[in-house]
């Protein structure tokens, strides 16, 4: 019997779960490389492909689950609760902003074209910069100012990290963008059997 590949459409909650799983695993596996992370792009995708409350649920779930791991395992007791919650407020709202902007910029452009991925990748760069400007401010407010650093000091120190973050976004935007756009538009490819012949031979 000939085997074929057929596409099974993925409902939004399932696509959101896949995004969350990829985000949590990706963030933990890439923790050793500062600012190389898939969460920003997945947040944009949540806004663009899923919209609605997924704009908040997907980034917050990715960050919440992975933060649970980071603050319990490698960074256990390293930072005060005040600093963790303060920074988290900026990082989480930053990702939700990115998701909302991803939805605003992309929701009417979701077609299976190179142009869609190109626009998505291009938009990820200013959103990465905006995210870093916002979170560096939070970093200064909750950590840097207590170390005697001024806000311009923190922004100057942020420059290499933002460049790395832009690299990360450029790297992941086409890879994750193409993958999740395909899942959203065409569904999940699963093996199946070719449909049976229904026509009857004339002499039967």
């Amino acid at each position: 019997m000939p085997m074929t590949i057929r596409a099974r459409s993925l409902p939004k909650p399932h696509l959101a779960l896949v995004m969350i799983a990829v985000g949590v695993v990706g963030r933990i596996l890439l923790a050793g490389a500062a600012n190389i992370e898939p969460v920003l792009i997945l947040s944009m995708l949540a806004g663009a492909l899923l919209g609605s409350y997924y704009t908040i649920v997907v980034p917050v779930a990715i960050m919440g689950l992975s933060d649970l791991y980071f603050y319990l395992v490698p960074y256990g007791g390293q930072y005060s609760t005040f600093a963790i919650l303060g920074l988290a407020a900026f990082v989480y709202t930053g990702f939700v902003f990115v998701a909302a902007m991803g939805g605003f910029a992309m929701r009417r452009r979701l077609v299976w074209r190179t142009r869609t991925i190109a626009v998505f990748t291009a938009i990820s760069v200013p959103l990465t910069v905006a995210f870093d400007v916002w979170t560096a401010f939070g970093d200064w407010l909750f950590l840097g100012s207590r170390s005697g650093l001024t806000l311009p000091d923190v922004y100057a120190m942020q420059v290499p990290f933002t460049l790395i973050h832009i690299f990360s976004s450029l790297l992941f935007a086409p890879i994750l963008g193409t993958t999740f756009l395909a899942l959203h538009l065409h569904g999940l490819p699963v093996p199946g059997t070719a449909p049976a012949e229904t026509g009857r031979a004339p002499d039967e």
Binding site: T114, A118, V159, P160, L163, F167, L170, P174
Partner: peptide
């Protein structure tokens, strides 16, 4: 579409090389 994809892939790779060079210059 194929030409667009090729142009995009080239621009994508070039942009990453430029950003990597900038990272190397500041780290």
């Amino acid at each position: 579409e194929r030409t667009q994809a090729a142009v995009f892939a080239a621009a994508w790779l070039a942009s990453m090389v430029v950003v990597l060079a900038a990272v190397g210059a500041v780290v």
